[in-house]
C-alpha cells in the first residue's frame, strides 16, 4: 500500500478542509458511514412523499394543490439526488431500495406519523422541513463531495418548503374557529416529533464522534436542535400557536429557549417500528415498487430491441 493512502493522510486531507471524491482513498468506516447516512437521508425524502401525498387530492384550492404537488415533487428529486450520491460509493439503487424495504436501512421516523388534517400539511412544511433545513444547511459543508453538492442543490430548493408550510399555518390561524383548531391540533402532534428529528442527545448518539471527526457531520444533534427551537418558538407565538410544552422558557442570558425533556421512549418505540404508520409507509413503497416491475422490464426490453437503431441515430 502507498504511504499517502494511509488513514493518516486521509485524516489530514479532512483536517485541511478538502473534499473527498468517489475515486479517492477513504477508510472503509467512512464509506460505510456515508452509505448509511446518505441512504437514510434519501429514503426519508422518498418516504416523506407519502404523508403529504395523502392530501394532494383534497387540497382546498388550485394554488394549494400546485404548491403541494411541486413540493412533494421536490422531495422526490431530493431522494433522487441523494441516491445518486450514494451510488458514487459503490452501492446501486436496486440495493438501496432492497435495504429500505427489508428494514435494513432506516428513514426519518417523523414520516411514521400520520397527516390527519389539512393543517398537518402546514405543520409538516413549517416544522418538519424547518427541522430538516437546519440539518441540511449544515450538511452543505460535509466532507464528501457528491453528498455536499447534492445538499447545496437541495438547500436551494428547500427554501420555499418551510415558507409554504408557515403560510398555511398562518392562514389557518387567521381563519375560522375550525381552522384554528386544526392548526393547533397539528402543532400539538408535530412539535415533539420534529424535535426528535435531530436524533438523540449528543451523549447518547452512537455515530456522532466518527462523523464529526470525518466532518461528515459538522454540528451535533443538540446544537442543531437548539437552533431550530430558537427560531421556531417565536414563529409559533407570532401567529398565536401554543407550544405544547408547559415548561419551556427563554434564558435571557444565552438567548436560548429551554424546553421540557423529550420523550425518548416514544422516539425509540417509533424507530423500532411501532409508530402509527411504519408498516403502512413501507408497504406502500413495496406495493408500487412491485407494481412498477413490469413497466421497468418493458422499458429494458424495448431498449434491447431498439438499441442498435438508437446507436445509429444517436
Amino acid at each position: 500500500m502507498h504511504n499517502e493512502h494511509s488513514d493518516t493522510h486521509f485524516q489530514s486531507r479532512i483536517d485541511n478542509g478538502e473534499h473527498i471524491e468517489s475515486k479517492d482513498y477513504m477508510p472503509e468506516g467512512y464509506r460505510k458511514h456515508l452509505i448509511r447516512q446518505i441512504s437514510q437521508h434519501a429514503h426519508s425524502e422518498v418516504i416523506g412523499m407519502q404523508p403529504e401525498g395523502n392530501w394532494i387530492t383534497r387540497a382546498p384550492s388550485l394554488r394549494a394543490k400546485q404548491i403541494l404537488l411541486a413540493k412533494i415533487q421536490d422531495e422526490g428529486g431530493h431522494g433522487l439526488y441523494l441516491y445518486s450520491a450514494a451510488e458514487t460509493l459503490g452501492i446501486s439503487r436496486v440495493e438501496l431500495i432492497e435495504n429500505l424495504q427489508s428494514g435494513k436501512a432506516k428513514y426519518s421516523s417523523i414520516f411514521n406519523y400520520p397527516a390527519l388534517n389539512w393543517a398537518d400539511i402546514g405543520a409538516i412544511g413549517w416544522l418538519v422541513d424547518g427541522a430538516a433545513i437546519v440539518n441540511q444547511v449544515s450538511l452543505q459543508r460535509t466532507s464528501y463531495g457528491p453528498y455536499s453538492r447534492a445538499m447545496v442543490r437541495i438547500c436551494k430548493e428547500e427554501s420555499f418548503h418551510q415558507r409554504q408550510g408557515y403560510e398555511i399555518m398562518t392562514k389557518m390561524m387567521r381563519g375560522t374557529k375550525d381552522q384554528q383548531a386544526m392548526a393547533q391540533d397539528a402543532m400539538n402532534r408535530w412539535w415533539w416529533p420534529s424535535l426528535m428529528m435531530f436524533g438523540p442527545h449528543d451523549t447518547d448518539s452512537p455515530h456522532s464522534s466518527d462523523a464529526v471527526k470525518w466532518k461528515i457531520k459538522r454540528e451535533t444533534n443538540d446544537e442543531l436542535r437548539q437552533k431550530f427551537i430558537d427560531k421556531t418558538i417565536p414563529q409559533a407565538e407570532l401567529i398565536g400557536l401554543i407550544i405544547p410544552d408547559n415548561n419551556f422558557s427563554l434564558d435571557e442570558k444565552t438567548g436560548h429557549y429551554k424546553i421540557s425533556p423529550i420523550n425518548w421512549d416514544e422516539f425509540y418505540r417509533v424507530i423500532a417500528g411501532h409508530g402509527p404508520c411504519n408498516k403502512q409507509r413501507v408497504d406502500h413503497h413495496i406495493k408500487f415498487h412491485e407494481e412498477g416491475a413490469w413497466i421497468r422490464e418493458a422499458a429494458v426490453a424495448y431498449k434491447q430491441k431498439h438499441v442498435k437503431k438508437e446507436l445509429e441515430t444517436a
Binding site: S84, E87, S92, R93
Partner: peptide, 29 residues
C-alpha cells in the same frame, strides 16, 4: 428487475455557457 441504467446529466444554463455536470438520473433509453 432493475432500476434502469445510470446516466450523467450536463446542463447549459444559457447559450454560450459551458455544460456543467448537474447530477445523475436513471433511464432505459
Amino acid at each position: 428487475d432493475t432500476q434502469l441504467d445510470l446516466w450523467e446529466v450536463f446542463i447549459q444554463s444559457k447559450s454560450g455557457l459551458p455544460y456543467i455536470h448537474a447530477g445523475s438520473i436513471h433511464a432505459s433509453d
